[in-house]
Design a protein around this nucleic acid. Structure first.
Length: 151
DNA sequence: TAGGCCATCTGGTCCT
DNA sequence: AGGACCAGATGGCCTA
């Protein structure tokens, strides 16, 4: 954008606040208004920057708990959200399955062999497990290369 | 070099 | 009135 559109603040249109300091102060008052407006803009910019930084921190934390599947580069924000969605749905499915099994031991033997840490959290140097692990393929629907919007 | 992703600025709207 | 949130615009950086 950067159009520097003149608003009512700097156009001097605002006349509802009467200045009682004499006739010569019109210039001074409007320049003070402009200064204040500029200060408020700068403060708002700083707040917005902080807000977005907080949002990015939250995204980073989310990236850390979401499976990476051997992605070389970090997931984009969009991919992170979609992966989180897929991850949550997968975990929900697992829990639902667990409820269906009467014996906890039966369920554990079915699933737990797949839950080594390196099966679902991969760092750049590692190979993606999703390609080699049919369990992972079954449980997680999201894969960055074959992504489609989940509903 | 085009396209994707991101950070930042900005003005508008809503809420307290 | 001021802060939080949002969406659009813009420019920079990176990669295929």
């Amino acid at each position: 954008m950067k159009t520097c559109k003149s608003s009512h603040l700097d156009s001097g249109v605002e006349s509802d606040t009467q200045c009682r300091s004499g006739a010569g102060c019109v210039m001074k008052c409007s320049s003070e208004r402009m200064e204040n407006a500029a200060k408020r803009r700068l403060a708002a910019n700083a707040r917005e920057r902080r807000r977005m930084q907080g949002l990015n921190t939250a995204f980073d934390r989310l990236r850390k708990v979401v499976p990476q599947w051997g992605q070389d580069k970090k997931l984009s924000k969009y991919e992170t959200l979609q992966m989180a969605l897929s991850y949550i749905m997968a975990l929900t499915r697992i829990l639902a399955e667990a409820e269906r099994y009467s014996s906890e031991r039966e369920w554990i033997s079915l699933h737990c062999e797949h839950f080594h840490a390196d099966s679902y959290h991969h760092y750049p140097a590692q190979k993606p497990a999703v390609n080699s692990d049919p369990y992972a393929q079954r449980v997680f629907s999201y894969h960055p290369e074959h992504f489609q919007i989940a509903n």
